[in-house]
Computed example of a mutant assay.
Amino acid sequence: MNKLTPNFSFTEMCLDRASSKRKSDEWLLEQLANEECQIIPTWRGQFLFNKTTLFVFNSGYKSNVLSEILGRHDKERSCIFLGMDNTSPIFVIDISYMEEDNLSRICNKTIELIDLRASLAFVTSKQASILGYAHWLTHWHRSHHFCGFCGSSTKPKNAGHSLICINNECGKEVFPRTDPVVIMLVEYKPKNGPAQCLLAEHHRIPDKVVSTLAGFVDPAETIEQAVIREVKEEAGVNVSTVKYITSQPWPFPSSLMLGFYATTDESLINIDDEEIRDAKWFTADEIRTFDEWGDEGNNYKLPRKESISRFLINAWVENN
């Protein structure tokens, strides 16, 4: 199987994260004062749109509303530096403390709140990667207001890319976590007939939508071992080879999807019905007849186009 160029969401990060420079408070203040600075507001996990255009605070807002927002006592937690887009500093600011009714007034526009997944229909690939990054960090901030070691409050450090306990006797510093997830397309080649791949209906997605198998990497486990274990646990199939293909940041809320192809000599499926509803072998020609996610009817449907699962299926079909 050939490795194709990834064409799914959240993989086109263009920002220079300026990891060394962002440690300087003075440098950060200079970036906030930069006329090219852009600050993306987010509200309770959603982004602000004017019709289908992403709303961003820019220098035109610095003298009024934005200065009020940045002047709040929690500005250090709510305003996080993402990186430099050429000469434009990009920040995300969490304005979840505001009442929803005030958002249009603050932005001086009619505002619609759209969650990250739905926003993918309106933004460019570059914007999608930035919004995924912003969503990832702000979610982490909202869920880590307190130290996991001593229970004291935390405060941001390193432009919002780490949090430190305010208790001087503790002082633990924590960083945004990334949860590795293996996602794999398993192939079986019968002695007679075309190759087949294993696709499953998962409980967490609509009926008749099929996708690849996936699962979190356990502690003290290699990613290859995770592939073997997850396929065996979910489908009762032993795989013989495991080949890494590509990866995808997945900000729902903080995973890194690691894509694989695996092969097996076993055709018998024995599913764990607590994990999946059903699983079957499909040929490439059968998959070509499937409908899209969201289509009506009882035909099988493919996973969302922005997912690495869809990428793995498309690449396999193209090679078969």
Rank of each mutant, 00 (worst) to 15 (best):
I106C: 10
I106D: 13
N108T: 06
K109L: 08
T110H: 11
T110P: 09
E112I: 13
L116P: 01
L116S: 11
R117Q: 15
A118L: 10
S119L: 08
L120M: 15
L120C: 12
F122G: 09
Q127T: 12
L131A: 08
L131K: 00
Y133F: 13
Y133Q: 06
A134H: 11
A134E: 14
A134D: 12
A134L: 09
W136R: 06
L137E: 05
L137N: 03
T138Q: 14
W140G: 02
R142E: 13
H144P: 06
C147A: 14
C150R: 05
C150W: 09
G151P: 10
G151V: 15
S152D: 02
S152C: 07
S153A: 12
P156E: 14
N158M: 08
N158L: 09
G160E: 15
H161Q: 07
S162W: 00
I164H: 05
I164A: 03
C165R: 11
C165F: 07
C165L: 08
I166K: 15
I166M: 14
I166Q: 04
I166H: 07
N168Y: 13
E169I: 14
C170D: 07
G171E: 02
K172R: 10
E173Y: 01
V174S: 10
V174W: 01
V174I: 14
F175K: 13
P176E: 03
P176K: 01
P176F: 07
R177K: 15
D179T: 11
D179E: 14
D179Q: 14
I183T: 04
V186K: 00
E187T: 08
Y188T: 00
K189L: 12
K189Q: 12
K189M: 15
K189W: 07
P190M: 05
K191P: 11
N192V: 13
A195P: 05
C197T: 06
C197F: 03
C197R: 04
C197V: 12
A200N: 06
H202N: 05
H203G: 13
H203C: 03
R204Q: 07
I205H: 04
D207S: 10
V209G: 00
V210L: 14
V210K: 02
A214D: 01
V217E: 00
V217R: 01
V217Y: 01
V217P: 02
P219R: 04
P219N: 12
A220V: 06
E221L: 06
E221W: 07
T222R: 07
T222P: 04
I223P: 08
I223W: 12
E224D: 11
E224C: 14
Q225I: 10
A226W: 01
V231E: 04
V231H: 02
V231L: 12
K232F: 10
K232E: 13
E234T: 10
G236I: 11
G236W: 00
G236Y: 13
V237F: 04
N238W: 08
N238K: 11
N238D: 14
S240M: 12
T241I: 08
K243Y: 08
I245N: 02
I245C: 03
I245S: 05
